[in-house]
Design a protein around this nucleic acid. Structure first.
Lengths: 250, 250
DNA sequence: CGCAAGATTGACGGAGTTCAAGCCGAGTGG
DNA sequence: CCACTCGGCTTGAACTCCGTCAATCTTGCG
């Protein structure tokens, strides 16, 4: 048990978000082609950006909590954000690690169905939800893009269910490393020594394991020369073919 | 091991689908208000239905298989369809049981990312995918409805990840029964003695458990008077409050 | 340096799997 | 109408992977 309630600290930090209205127009956005904003031309982008604020979150800073009124939707532009659900007794399931280009905040009811919290320093584009939805009426291409994004996420969610329900600890870790590497590659980030900024505990809560099992499994993969743990939270994937075989349960 | 390959039989059956062009216009559709067709007026429905065929599937009959070219999208109008993913060694994760009103076939690539198979006799509306997508251009309201549906499914998927990653067998079964009951209620189907047409094995593959554990857990809930197993695959939920407490891990 | 938080390692136990045997019920055929 | 069969369900016993608990090690930071 930690000496004080972690969530309390988190909310303190949340109390001082940093709106960043500076300038930084979306035109220069490095990840736009990956986001829901992809289909917009410069003029449309300008219109869209009028309702948008950029915000910065420090590590362990909550973006929103499950049950909060869903007043905003977000795009991650840098850093890592985790989303998760809790059981009353504190058991936690991390349902995703979001990186640059990922969208979050889609809520079918008026409240968020999950919590979101920065893992690293993170920058998010922040749209008031009502204005965002109103905007969609004028930009059907964005709506279609959102449907595509949602459909991708649905496929990823099914993949994750397969992992959670049917894979062993070793298979889970191998799958996790490969998927992360592949997502980094798609965004043009370094994909072989990959950066793991999240704690073992977060990884465990994502894979349905405990911290200890995650740690032991890393050790195991390390001893069999499939990965190397480098300084700064970097992990080198040494034998990708074998990792892929393991990830698929072969 | 079964004496012959189950999938072989399934494909034989699939070879003779039953197109049903009879009449049955969508206007009379009992579940339309729950589907992606909900926003259409009668004239629009007529236009939509020109590209649609109704098909019937018998139990264990494949609707499509993971990896097939995604030529169609579907709406379930009656019966139960399961969707699932497989690992090379045969381990299976059922990612959903679809009932009347549910949409399936959304694929972000050109191929289906999962398999679909009838659990009971099932009727599906079947739309050629390209025509369906073309139609969407004229009916933005349907596209928006699809986004809402996808977003609901995403929330359900996250709930399922919480279940798979963090709940005990007892909590899984209790959650499963309550959710099914709740979905039946929303469609106007009988929600207390609920119908469980799927096998223990299917339930296990949905909840990340084995047949044996599912069976043992049912027995356990039965002995503690929380459920009763009736004839015809009916399950009576006797103490819903307590089941809810269990489902939430309390 | 010294502390605190996270990561690793070890020993042990338990929830759920595996393997195996029996049961039940629906369909079949004599 | 009943014996037979076959698939699915239930129950039992042994095992195992992973969780739990606890101690130690590492790392980053004031």
């Amino acid at each position: 048990m930690p000496p004080f309630d972690v969530r309390f600290v988190r909310n303190l930090e949340q109390a001082r978000p940093r709106p960043d209205r500076s300038s930084a127009p979306c035109v220069a956005c490095a990840v736009r082609h990956l986001t829901v904003c992809a289909p917009l031309n410069p003029a449309e982008l300008a219109e869209f950006s009028t309702i948008m604020k950029r915000r910065h979150f420090e590590p362990a800073n909550a973006v929103f909590d499950e049950g909060d009124l869903a007043k905003h939707v977000f795009n991650v532009t840098s850093g890592v954000v985790k989303i998760y659900k809790l059981l009353p007794d504190g058991r936690r399931q991390v349902t995703g690690f979001l990186i640059a280009g990922d969208f979050l905040g889609l809520a079918n009811e008026e409240r968020y169905a999950y919590s979101a919290e920065a893992v690293t320093d993170a920058r998010l584009c922040c749209f008031p939800r009502q204005k965002f939805e109103a905007m969609l009426d004028n930009f059907p291409a964005v709506e279609r893009q959102m449907l595509m994004v949602a459909s991708h996420e649905l496929a990823a969610a099914q993949e994750q269910m397969l992992l959670l329900g049917r894979k062993t600890a070793k298979e889970k870790i191998a799958s996790f490393l490969l998927r992360l590497s592949s997502r980094y590659r798609k965004r043009g980030l370094q994909d072989n020594p990959i950066h793991l900024p999240m704690s073992r505990n977060d990884i465990g809560d994502f894979l349905g394991l405990t911290t200890e099992t995650v740690s032991r499994t890393f050790t195991q993969l390390k001893s069999s020369q499939m990965i190397r743990l480098l300084a700064g939270g970097l992990v080198e994937l040494c034998d990708i073919d074998q990792l892929e075989d393991i990830a698929e349960g072969m």
